[in-house]
Each structure stands twice: as C-alpha cells, then as structure tokens.
Simulated assay, not measured.
Amino acid sequence: MIKAVVVDMDGTFLNSKHDYNREWFKEIYQKLSKQNIRFVVASGNQYAQLKSFFPESHENISFIAENGALIFEQNTLIREHHFEIDLVDQIITYLKDTHPDVDMILCGIASSYIEKNTSERFKSIAQTYYHKLQEVDHLQNFCEDKYVKFALSVPVSQTEQIQDSLQTYFGHQIVAVSSGHGSVDIIIPGKHKADGLSFLATKWGISPEDIVAFGDGNNDVEMLQYVGHSYAMENGSSLVKEASKNLAPSNDESGVLQVIEKYL
C-alpha cells in the first residue's frame, strides 16, 4: 500500500512552462489526504521557492529542499546540515581561479547569495528559482548565514568536465552532481534526497517499499533507488531511467499526476 508520494520539481512535476495542472493536482491531493498518503516535494531548489507553488496546501506538504540539506514540515525547519565556512571559501576560490566563466549562487538557510557583478542574464534566471536572493559585493568571507549548497551555471558542453574536476579536487569533502541543462550542484556528502527521505520515513514509521517517487535528473538517482516504486520521467536522463523500475509520461504530459491517479 502506498503511504507517501515524493516528487522532484523541475523537469518532473513542473512542465516546461514552469507550472503544473493545478486543478487536477487539487483533486488528486484531496484524494491523497483522505487516504492518509503523504505528499513530499524533494528538490535541489530553495524552500521559499518550492512552497510558493502550493499556496493552498504547503502547510501540509513536507519539503526536502536544497538536495536534502534542509527538511521542512508545517513551515518549520526540522533538520539541517551545512558546509564548514573554510570549505566554502576554498570552493569559491577554486571556481574563480579555474572556471571564471561559471556563474554561482551560494545557498544558505536564511537566503541565497549572488555577487553584484554577475551578469544580468544569470541574475534574471536566479530570481526565478530563488525567492530569497541577496546581492553581495563578494561571496567570500560573507559569514552571516550557514551554507548548504552551491548552484552553478556552466557551459552545457563542459558540464561533465567541470563536475569531474570539482569532485577530483575536493574529493570526499563534496559531491558535485549535475541536475541537467548546464547546471551543477555542489552538495554535502551523504545529504542527498534519499537521505532526507529516509529521515522522514523513519520519523513517520513508513517503509521505503510503501513510497512512490518521481525524478528526471541525476540528483534524483539515490532517491529512486531507495523507494519501492520508482518512476523516471520520459524526458529524464539515461542514468535516471537505469535507476528506476518504471517509466512515467513526460513532465509536459502531467506524467506524475497520470501515474498517481492510477495508484488511487
């Protein structure tokens, strides 16, 4: 019996217009609630942005944000992990010295941060994904927050090369993972979506076998391997499809809602 539904957002629950069929979801969410099936959002994105997609129901939805570093229930942060500040400074220095064409957002618990001299194009993109975003003179030595993730915009053709170079240089101190479309996230080792979901499942007394999860990007792989009912989106990466037991219709076909409705 299904006891929880877990969805990634970009490329999975959200369509290419960065939205979803809200009326259909409302009907499905009501059915989920009546059957005491939990709905969980698991994303690499910021909590403030994620909950904005669910104005009527966010208080009853659990959020695994920033690729598992932060977990929220009922608008309350119930678990957090962050990088040591010295490592944050080392990562910024390395990126500026070796990949000066990479744009970066430093993601904290209270807000996310971007340098003032960043291109207006990237600032515009960043504002779409980060509802709490501050411009600062320099990211280094900026210690007003605890930092949970780096979000990088890289040349698409260099995605794997930059990801590999980061992993090789910093080793076990970080995990560099591509979420597709020229994006690379630097996350805390072991604090991925599956780790966050395992924390919630233990808290709720739910078995992984009773969870259905959906994803499209490489940062969803651990989560899909963890659950009993895993779905790669038709538009997902080859790695995600290899890690999943099932295939869902694409995000532009409301594939997640199609599959959930069949379960219900």
Rank of each mutant, 00 (worst) to 15 (best):
E135C: 09
S62H: 11
G205L: 11
I64H: 10
I71N: 03
L50I: 14
S254R: 01
H138T: 14
S179R: 09
V41T: 00
L106P: 02
A4D: 03
N246W: 11
F122S: 00
G108S: 09
D103V: 01
L224R: 07
H58V: 04
E261I: 00
E66N: 14
P208M: 08
K96C: 02
G171C: 07
E222M: 12
D97V: 13
F170V: 01
I71F: 04
D19I: 04
I85C: 00
S178W: 12
V5Y: 09
I2A: 05
A243N: 04
N219A: 02
N117K: 14
K3S: 06
N246S: 13
I37A: 06
V212S: 05
V7R: 01
N219T: 01
E23Q: 15
Q127C: 05
L106R: 03
G217W: 09
L200T: 01
L87N: 03
F150M: 07
M104Y: 12
H229P: 00
I61G: 04
E242P: 04
G215A: 09
L87T: 04
F63W: 02
I211S: 04
K149T: 02
I188R: 07
S124R: 13
V240R: 10
G182T: 06
L247E: 03
S238G: 06
V41P: 00
A243M: 06
D220A: 12
F25V: 05
I61F: 05
A194P: 10
D210A: 14
D97S: 13
I2W: 06
S165M: 12
S198Y: 09
D210R: 12
E242G: 02
E84W: 07
E209G: 09
Q140D: 03
K51D: 00
H181F: 15
L87V: 00
I186V: 15
N21R: 09
A42M: 09
I78H: 10
F72Q: 04
K26F: 02
I2M: 12
D97G: 04
I61Q: 10
S183W: 14
D145M: 11
T93A: 12
